[in-house]
Design a protein around this nucleic acid. Structure first.
Length: 637
RNA sequence: GGGCCCAUAGUUCAGUUUGGAUAGAAUGGCUGCCUGCGGAGCAGUUGGUCGAGGGUUCAAAUCCCUCUGGGCCCGCCA
């Protein structure tokens, strides 16, 4: 929107000035200065030319600024300039000031007019995003939640900017981890219903069954053999075992989904690994890879008898073992090919459940229910897979293999993120003694993890306490709903505000904070906006920004004018934290504004109306941004 | 052994892609501000040789090299 216009006009102005002086340079940059007094945009071109022209940066800046003034005058009188002034600073910078009157008017009137300002960035482009994909043998821990929140936040942003998005959740219902819990039920005869009736089934499977089985593996090696044979039966589709496994995994899956839904995530389709196995998609893929010489059979050496892929990055990678079974990576290939459309979708689908937002969750199916009303899930132009960065190598090889088929690798994106670690303090609370002050890796197998629902429940309790303290009149369902929304907001925000690349240290005590740079802080700012609008009883909002002259208002308008830029940046770089940062900055500026300047109490009616209108603009943008992050805007809290 | 990532205030992190002016938040500690538009807030104060050394540059937290410390990946496991 408007801020971009200001930037591009400044860019044109500098180019014009350079041309007037017959100087060639296209490597200059325009950046926002570190301090307000330097204006809104600075150009470094003088530094770059200093040596070549044998002049000081300040001299050059002065020359250029003179020409920039000519540029502004040549613009014609009917078109107003977004540049208010350009000055040569003694340091050598050329500092531009934006014409905030025009920019503010444009931005505020646009936002006020449009109930939900829509940005058509996607143009209905088909995108598949896969996230969550937790093995169906345990309850989600906070590490899984990072995946859910990253995936769901990107989904929300893409959806709102007019991409045609499909969300997938891949369910590995026939892997080793499922075999582990089956060992517990079938051989150790652990009860199939949790002895503790209050315990969720997914928690029971993970904490009791899975943990117990893993403990016994170390004592009883024969159990490992039994697991192996179970796994084989699972993969071959043995009717009895498959049926039992399916009962267990779908019970776990439904409990896991309850946690995901609690976090406000939603999905379009569940893909079960067992269905992919039975579809013979792998055999078709294998056949094609052999035919097209993407993989070759080794005849001698240590890999004799194996089908291998010659990776540019990794060297020889075994795809099919000498006994004819597929390796872990091999199983991901057909799914990836399906996403980008190299393989045709031949699956059957059924309705699995209706979700919290009333959308339908579909599932792949082995039986044809003649349910032809399902949407088209595959293929997509772009496919995004949210997996933690320990899988980076494997994902790169899959991209390489896709490339061999039809140069698809740029359409297959691995959205990678760092794992969640437990802070030493939280680890100690769980009875683990970390060396030094180091963080601790979570491990489901070793029982070192923090259960997602436990954290949410604790946050909920804290939020409820605070809500009651502040609003004694809120009771019953209202109180519960509000407390839950605050808890979710705290959790989602803390999982998205940091850089994806970096490991995230989870600390139970810190994460319980509802103050400072947190989700509830954003909700609070939003609620304040709502109350102001409500109390103002304003008839109509004003687009006249000439009444807004305070530096605080200036900064707010400038920030608002960048709202579209940030969304574009987020998508271009797949950096959801930019959304969180922008919203936090906006909330901070608003709180300062609220503290320092009278809004409803302002005596001058025109100024008051302009300020209320500014609040309404802030409210709308805050609502859009916090919704991107999956935080529910609350009118009271 | 090979590859990738990371190191900024007591703590948790922005800032590094695209070098630029006095390195910013949050939290903790200390101190102010509610008869006032909601104090889940605002302000002040405390706290930093940007891991170390070298190089490039008019200019380095940011780019290059070396080193140190930490993490992850590298199986006919999944």
């Amino acid at each position: 929107m408007s801020f971009e216009k200001f930037v591009s006009e400044a860019n044109e102005a500098v180019k014009f000035a350079l041309k007037q002086l017959s100087i060639k340079n296209d490597s200059f940059s325009l950046t926002e200065p570190t301090r307000d007094e330097f204006g809104d945009l600075s150009c470094n071109v003088s530094f770059l030319l200093s040596k070549e022209l044998q002049k000081s940066p300040y001299e050059i800046a002065s020359m250029l600024v003179e020409k920039i003034h000519q540029f502004r005058n040549s613009g014609g009188s009917d078109s107003q300039s977004y540049i208010l002034s350009a000055v040569a600073h003694e340091s050598g910078y050329i500092n531009f000031k934006a014409n905030l009157t025009i920019i503010g008017k444009e931005v505020i009137s646009y936002i006020l007019k449009n109930d939900r300002p829509k940005l058509d960035i996607g143009k209905r482009k088909r995108v598949i995003i896969e996230h969550t994909s937790v093995n169906p043998n345990k309850a989600l821990h906070v590490g899984h939640l990072r995946n859910v929140v990253i995936g769901d936040t990107m989904y929300r942003i893409l959806k709102e900017t007019n991409y045609d998005v499909t969300v997938l959740n891949y369910v590995d219902d026939s892997g080793l981890q499922v075999a582990d819990v089956l060992v517990g039920f079938l051989f150790l005869k652990l009860p199939v219903t949790p002895p503790n009736k209050n315990m969720k089934f997914d928690t029971y499977c993970g904490n009791e069954v899975y943990a117990k089985v893993n403990e016994l593996y170390e004592k009883d090696a024969s159990l490992i053999e039994r697991r192996k044979s179970l796994l084989k039966k699972l993969e071959e589709g043995d009717p009895e075992i498959s049926k039992f496994a399916s009962e267990i995994t779908s019970k776990v899956l439904k409990d896991q989904l309850r946690t995901c839904w609690r976090m406000k995530a939603r999905y379009d389709l569940l893909n079960f690994e067992s269905h992919i196995i039975r579809s013979k998609l792998w055999e078709k893929t294998f056949e094609r890879m052999r035919r097209e010489n993407i993989i070759i059979k080794e005849t001698e050496g240590e890999n004799a008898g194996c089908w291998v892929f010659g990776s540019d990055l990794e060297g020889t990678k075994i795809i099919v073992r000498s006994n004819g079974t597929a390796t872990y990576i091999a199983k991901d290939i057909p799914y990836a090919l399906l996403k980008v459309g190299t393989l045709q979708d031949q699956f059957k689908y059924r309705v699995f459940l209706t979700q919290w937002d009333n959308s339908t969750l579909w599932a792949s199916s082995t039986v044809d229910l003649n349910d032809t009303n399902h949407p088209n899930f595959f293929p997509a132009e772009d496919s995004i897979t949210v997996i933690d960065n320990r899988q980076t190598r494997l994902q790169k090889i899959i991209q390489e293999i896709l490339d061999k088929f039809e140069s698809n690798s740029n359409r297959y994106l691995h959205l990678s993120y760092g794992p969640v670690l437990l802070s030493s303090r939280t680890a100690m609370a769980l009875g683990i003694r970390p060396d030094d002050q180091k963080s601790v890796q979570m491990s489901g197998r070793k029982g070192i993890f923090v259960d997602a629902d436990f954290v949410l429940d604790t946050l909920y309790g804290k939020a409820k306490e605070e809500t009651v303290k502040r609003n004694p009149e809120i009771t019953g369902e209202d109180l519960e709903r509000t407390s839950e929304e605050i808890a979710i907001s705290a959790m989602r925000y803390s999982l998205i505000k940091n850089d994806l690349d970096k490991e995230l240290k989870f600390d139970m005590i810190d994460s319980l904070s509802l103050d400072g740079n947190s989700g509830p802080y954003l909700q609070y700012a939003y609620a304040r906006c709502c109350r102001l609008i409500e109390k103002s009883n304003i008839g109509s909002f004003s687009e006249d920004t000439s009444q807004l002259s305070d530096p605080i208002e200036y900064r707010l308008i400038k920030h608002l004018s960048k709202y579209a830029l940030v969304i574009q940046d987020t998508i271009n770089n797949m950096e959801p934290k930019l959304i969180a940062l922008y919203a936090y900055d906006l909330a901070t500026m608003f709180n300062l504004f609220y503290e320092k300047l009278p809004i409803l109490k302002e005596k001058d009616a025109k100024i008051s109306q302009a300020r209320i209108s500014l609040v309404e603009t802030i409210r709308k943008i805050l609502k859009i941004y916090i919704s991107f992050v999956g935080i529910t805007p609350l009118e009271r809290m």
